[in-house]
Every structure is written in structure tokens, then in C-alpha cells.
Design a protein around this nucleic acid. Structure first.
Lengths: 127, 127
DNA sequence: ATTGATAATGGGAATCATTGTCAATAAGCC
DNA sequence: GGCTTATTGACAATGATTCCCATTATCAAT
């Protein structure tokens, strides 16, 4: 993450600065209209968001209308995939799970969500 | 679920029968091409899938390309949302989690996935 | 500070899953 | 069989996202 492959442009900076002021998930289009003053093109917003996701700086999830929604990552929470036979374990991140926890908890009136996710399966060597 | 509001048509029956033979998630388009012999229109497939989802007979999740993928519900695996103060617990289902477990496990060469997901938060009464 | 190589921008067109439209058809009831 | 009405399906429309490409901006080297 934080691959230093991108140049610092006014647009990219504005987008990141805007995201820093935002705790909730936001869609590309919403970002576009809320940033109207900053004169950033919609294509640029899509590109920047996509880069930020690839660098691991943004969490994404796709809402029920098929629209992607973004939020700056907090600490990098991770989960485990475990083999039920040999115990081999693989770490992974799951922004979907972060987002799911937020949405589900919020929909029930909960706040300050944490979550635990564990996937158990049989690894290739143990089949 | 299983709201008996729909007529039994050849098309609807074919779609359900096809889904019964399928363990993995499938998209509407894939279903359409795999069922070519059955002469069912794409609109009809979308409508039927949407009805089945509303009746609670199908699990859905939206993949990374924004395409919806469907699978007949199996046993209704569920998860818990817990309050960290009073212990109040709410059951919920999360097809996304089912799908996530499948995908992630498979991507690491694992099979026969199970998973556990727990969300912990503070409920409205305990704030 | 200027230059030059190259990455980033933006606006419109293109893509592609999904939904809407509506005339034709088929289910289910008498 | 005949009737009422939901369902179907071909096609158009929608809408988020990506592609295209001429123009512009960044930044390291001069």
C-alpha cells in the first residue's frame, strides 16, 4: 500500500483532503458534486478513487444499487483464513467486512463497531 | 418468504430447476447463456431472479465488477450483532459474507469453506 | 528558472448490467 | 372452450463506470 507511483496534483490533493473530512462512505458522483468548487473532473475522481483503493488507502463496498462507495481506511484490521486440518493460516483484509459491519450495526442503531471474521476451509495440501 | 403471488410458468420453473443443479453463484447473463436451450428471455430471467430474492429463496451479492451473482439459499446460516455493554444480540444474515468466504478461500486454494462473523458494537440504550 | 519526458486531466463517447415499455402470449378460473 | 389478467420477450432506455485522446501539469535534470 501507499505505492509512491503517483504524482501530486492539485486534483488528487483536493480529493484526499476532502475524504479526510468525511467519516461516512461516499460515492464518486456525490464526491463530484460536493467538490464542485474544486474543479475536478469526474473521470479524474474515478481514477483517483481507484488508485487509492489499489494502494490500500480506501475502503470500498458496492451498495445495493450497484454503486461503489468509498471511505479512507482506518487502521488496517485483518482476518484469518485457517485450514481445518493442518492449521495453516493466511491473513487477509476484507473491506467488504468492514463496510458490512458498519452498515449492519448502524441499521440496528449500534455504534462503535468492531468485528471478527474467520474463514475455515481445507487447504490444497490437506485435501 | 415464498410469497405465493406468482403464476407457474414454464420459464420460471426452468430457472428454478436450473438453479437447483447449481451450487456456485451465477450471474443473470451466465444463467441466460447456460439456459439457451430453454428459450427464456433475459428480461424474464432478471425478473424471476429479482422475485426469488424478494421471496428470500436466493442469496445475492454484487461482485467486484458490479455484477450481481445469485445462488439458491441453503440452510440459513446466520451471524450475530452483539452489544459490548448489555450483551443484547441481534441475528442477521450476510450473503456477502458467504460469498466472501467462498471467494477468498478459493483464491488461496482452500475448499469446503465455513466462516464465523461477529459484529460487536454499542447499542442505542447503552450509549 | 527553463526544458523535456511523461504522467495526469477532463469532457464526451462507449460499455455493459440492469430496468422499463408494451404488444403478444399463456395461466388459471368459469 | 372462452375470458381475465399476469407474464413474457424483443428492444429501448438508463445510469454508473471506463475508455479515448488532445491538452495540460508535474518534476528531475539542466
Amino acid at each position: 500500500m501507499n505505492a509512491p507511483t503517483k504524482r501530486n496534483t492539485r486534483q488528487r490533493t483536493s480529493i484526499i483532503d476532502f475524504l479526510k473530512t468525511r467519516k461516512e462512505f461516499i460515492s464518486a458522483k456525490e464526491l463530484y458534486s460536493e467538490m464542485e468548487g474544486s474543479k475536478v473532473g469526474l473521470s479524474t475522481i474515478y481514477r483517483a478513487l481507484s488508485d487509492l483503493v489499489n494502494d490500500g488507502d480506501l475502503d470500498v463496498f458496492i451498495d445495493n444499487d450497484g454503486e461503489s462507495r468509498f471511505r479512507l481506511c482506518g487502521s488496517h484490521h485483518h482476518h484469518h483464513l485457517l485450514c481445518r486440518k493442518c492449521g495453516k493460516s493466511v491473513e487477509f483484509q476484507a473491506p467488504e467486512a468492514e463496510a458490512l459491519a458498519e452498515r449492519l450495526g448502524a441499521s440496528e442503531g449500534f455504534s462503535e463497531m468492531e468485528h471478527r471474521l474467520e474463514i475455515i476451509g481445507t487447504c490444497q495440501e490437506c485435501i
